[in-house]
Design a protein around this nucleic acid. Structure first.
Length: 553
RNA sequence: GGCCCCGUCGUCUAGAGGCCUAGGACGUCGCCCUCUCAAGGCGGUAACGCCGGUUCGAAUCCGGUCGGGGCUACCA
């Protein structure tokens, strides 16, 4: 064992003892059953949608049990730190309404267990590393990265298990003189954990998966990164043990890729003298890729990034509802408000990774939007457009009454079967844009394919006839308004209905549906729209006639 | 290579030995409604990865196998 004097010389003289931290971060004294949870992302870019998934579960678990939800930033990897990631985290959490009880986000520390950013807690970890060194449960290791690579290569070549253990662990029991020599030479070192693992099997309980077992860890993993770094930070494993213990977390819910590390983490907690914490490992969100499925990847899949949902303007309620249903299948069968209010149960989690189904999300989203009033929709589209479609934002705020008229067609109060044509705010322009003269692009070419292949002459005749004799919808029923199109179509040789047309296609110019499609395209620029009479009422007679004439040149 | 996790319709899942000729939802297909959509109504399609075993009886238990995913970093 290395001398106390040598070990202490490795750290600042004023570095606190572990007892200091224990006192500074006392047990929370919460009632039994109150869960203290956390979500701990790394600031390496946009938050992954899986992060929102995990964060929402953590908040729900904390809130429903009367506990606390902590947001911790794990920035121990300085090389991968991404400028702006923190702001994007904030934007993401904000969008989805996920608010931490304790965090550093926004530049303000809320909570008395902070700081909640690992790079700001370097001395906390160091106190514990020094303690581990003093008690011989850790040791300095001077193996260089090149040597480590060579070691791994040799292990692979000989079929040995990779890692730093047994005969490969050259610095595990190095004599003090040797250590001192390298230190004097100014060589950098890392600190490794002296694993007590003896190659036995261990078993443990996962809150979601139940009883699990594995080979015990016997690898002397690195716990404190190279002394060559200006800021000496720990690796994930040590940081996890120290932070989750000191922040008095009671449930560590994380992705299943960490299951393999549980034996190691137990060793670490034991060596540190910490009580073990309950783990719950959730399956990652997956993506279909050819014949197989893989983890959703931020690099390859746009829908993996939280930014995607914000840019597209998916209502957060819909996304949260969908995600909640993925967490607990039972909740997917409940109506949205009930599902969002119902408790999440760890035991109800599936253990296989679900595929993210964007079609299903669209369906949920369309359902949700159909329950909103026109005012609510405008209030949501406006801020979205402010960021992603400035022209639309301008138009919308100038023409709010028109927008409300547009959004009252076949939706809103008293409508038994509301339209479900809006899934996300980016849909607004393609679906409702034609209501606004400022952003509407008239159809001027009579042979435009949107007219369905009708002859240009017929298109012009329809347009002229409609414009010339145009009767705006009055108090009269919509059916009566449509009569003018019927009459016009009949005069131009269109069949009065589909059935008649189908019986003898050659006898007609087309069916009433074809004629009406032309009017529709003239007025809206698209073959898909709500009731024509209602649209024309919203637009006003002048605009309708102008649009109809656009194709006459 | 070693170890770990996972495996019911295309997707999310219900199912904890007989209630299962496997249920629901989304998708998809057909029909109805209809001036086009979006919907809505009705109906259909479609799954227990495979092989053994235990049992009177297995999607459910056991073993194996195949497939997918993960860990095996001074990344988390």
């Amino acid at each position: 064992m290395l001398s106390r004097e040598l070990i202490d010389s490795l750290f600042p003289a004023d570095l606190p003892e572990p007892a200091y931290w224990e006192e500074r971060y006392p047990p929370r004294g919460l009632p039994d059953g109150a869960l203290v949870t956390r979500f701990a992302p790394s600031p390496t870019g946009w938050l992954h949608i899986g992060g929102i998934f995990a964060a929402s579960i953590n908040v729900a678990l904390a809130r429903q049990s009367g506990g606390v939800y902590v947001l911790r930033v794990e920035d121990t990897d300085q090389a991968r730190f991404h400028e702006g990631a923190l702001a994007q985290f904030e934007a993401g959490f904000d969008y989805f309404g996920i608010e931490a009880d304790e965090s550093d986000l926004g530049g303000v520390t809320r909570g008395r267990y902070g700081p909640y950013t690992q790079s700001a807690r370097a001395s906390v970890y160091q106190s514990y590393v020094r303690e581990l060194l003093r008690t011989g449960k850790a040791y300095p290791c001077f193996e260089t990265p090149e040597q480590a690579r060579a070691r791994t290569a040799r292990q692979q070549a000989t079929g040995a298990l990779p890692g730093y253990y047994g005969e490969w662990a050259l610095w595990r029991d190095a004599p003090e003189e040797q250590v001192r020599e390298r230190l004097d030479a100014g060589d950098s070192y890392v600190v490794r954990f002296r694993s007590p693992g003896a190659g036995r099997r261990v078993s443990f309980t996962d809150a979601i998966r139940g009883e699990l077992s594995a080979d015990d860890n016997r690898n002397d993993i690195v716990i404190l990164k190279s002394s060559a770094n200006a800021l000496r930070l720990p690796t994930y494993h040590l940081a996890h043990a120290v932070d989750d213990h000191l922040m008095r977390i009671t449930l560590v819910l994380r992705a299943e890729e960490w299951i393999s590390s549980v034996p190691l983490h137990h060793q670490l907690f034991d060596a540190l003298g910490f009580g073990r914490i309950q783990y719950a490992h959730i399956a990652p969100l997956m993506k279909q890729d050819g014949g197989s499925r893989r983890k959703l990847s931020k690099r390859k899949d746009p829908e993996a990034s939280v930014g995607f949902y914000i840019e597209q303007g998916f209502p957060p309620e819909a996304v949260r509802y969908y995600l909640r249903g993925l967490a607990n299948g039972r909740l997917a069968e409940l109506p949205l408000p009930e599902a969002l209010a119902a408790p999440i149960r760890l035991a109800d989690f599936g253990t296989a990774g679900p595929l993210l189904d964007m079609v299903k999300l669209d369906d949920i989203s369309a359902d949700f939007v159909s329950t909103l009033t026109g005012d609510e929709i405008v209030d949501r589209v406006l801020p979205w457009a402010g960021g992603y479609d400035p022209d639309l934002a301008k138009t919308l705020s100038a023409e709010r009454p028109l927008a409300l008229r547009a959004l009252s067609i076949e939706r809103g109060e008293g409508v038994a079967n509301p339209r479900k044509d809006l899934r996300k705010w980016a849909d607004f322009r393609p679906v409702y844009g034609y209501f606004f003269p400022e952003i509407f692009v008239p159809v001027t070419d009579p042979s435009d394919e949107r007219f369905g292949g009708l002859s240009p002459d017929l298109v012009r005749a329809l347009a002229a006839g409609f414009a010339d004799g145009y009767q705006p919808p009055s108090a009269s029923p919509e059916a009566a308004w449509f009569d003018q199109i019927r009459a016009l179509a009949a005069a131009l040789g269109f069949a009065p209905n589909q059935k008649t047309y189908k019986k003898d296609p050659d006898a007609y110019s087309g069916s009433i549906a074809d004629a009406s499609a032309v009017i529709r395209v003239l007025i809206t620029g698209t073959r898909r729209s709500p009731d024509l009479a209602a649209i024309c009422a919203a637009l006003g007679a002048d605009e309708v006639v102008t649009r109809a004439r656009a194709v006459l040149g």
